[in-house]
Design a protein around this nucleic acid. Structure first.
Length: 273
DNA sequence: GCCCAGGAGTGTG
DNA sequence: CACACTCATGGG
């Protein structure tokens, strides 16, 4: 497992590097993670919470990653694309945090998404030790007006979050957690500010549905370039489902990061000429 | 200054 | 169904 690869790349927006380790918040715990050789060192303030269990859950330690990678390696193209990404893991976020975060993630780049979310956490989330903040609950966000949320830098996304935190109480989230992927997806898409792509991100990163296959502009490029597949969301999703099966979500992460890395290194070479 | 970003909603042909 | 347009803004 590679922490840098896993935490720095757009499935989660709250982790920050500091002096060679990663600091973030899981539920209401401030956690520091550091990779030492093949071990993962977890630091947190002593307390009641089982922080190691939180970390294991967040990094999906229960996944049989070898079996998943073996299954996906049967695809020649993907096998090559994931060669340098073996340490990448899909993370498990809180359901509400995932829905809210990816509803804010539309038409914005990753640094900006992180900034929006950080501002929200500091403004409306519970204060934790060391000046960190928890992700705000729906109840906490209900105290914010649309203008308040605009002032957090959300732009046109403010009205969506304003509605979402009222629509999704804990009971509704609990109901959603009980649904299989297809039904969950349909229900999520009914929410304001949640289309196909945001629904798939929430399903994959928030509800742990590994068969979900979110498609953004990077994934469109990757699938056109590597597989020659173009078309609407439904067509691309069907292709992925048939090709990658129950682990399409992992395939998506490998393709997504591969495409972004390629764009970055390509840009460097170009500017050197 | 310019381009684009882990899109969605709405209206039109 | 397929497009076209708008939304609001900051990072690179």
């Amino acid at each position: 497992m590679d922490l840098d690869l896993t935490l720095a790349c757009g499935q989660t927006f709250r982790w920050r590097t500091h002096e060679g380790s990663w600091i973030g918040v899981l539920e209401r715990e401030v956690v520091r993670l550091k990779q030492v050789e093949r071990k993962l060192v977890v630091e947190a303030k002593p307390g009641k919470a089982d922080v190691v269990a939180l970390v294991r859950g967040h990094l999906r330690a229960q996944d049989d990653i070898m079996a998943i990678q073996r299954r996906l390696s049967s695809d020649e193209i993907l096998s090559r694309g994931m060669r340098d990404l073996k340490g990448l893991r899909i993370v498990k976020l809180g359901e509400w945090e995932a829905i809210a975060s990816f509803a804010l993630a539309t038409y914005a780049n990753i640094p900006r998404i992180g900034k929006m979310i950080e501002t929200l956490c500091r403004s409306y989330g519970s204060t934790l030790s060391g000046g960190f903040s928890a992700f705000p609950t729906q109840r906490q966000l209900r105290t914010a007006s649309v203008k308040d949320l605009i002032d957090c830098g959300l732009g046109y996304r403010a009205k969506y979050l304003h509605e979402l935190c009222r629509l999704l109480d804990d009971e509704e989230i609990s109901n959603l957690k009980a649904l299989p992927y297809d039904e969950l997806r349909e229900r999520l898409i009914e929410l304001p500010g949640v289309g196909e792509k945001v629904a798939d991100c929430a399903a994959l990163f928030g509800f742990g549905k590994l068969e979900a296959f979110p498609i953004d502009v990077w994934m469109e490029r990757a699938m056109a370039r590597l597989y020659g597949v173009k078309g609407n969301y439904m067509k691309l999703r069907r292709f992925a489902s048939e090709r990658f099966g129950p682990y399409a979500g992992y395939a998506q992460e490998y393709l997504y990061h591969n495409e972004r890395m390629r764009a970055r290194s390509g840009g460097c070479r170009f500017s050197e000429q």
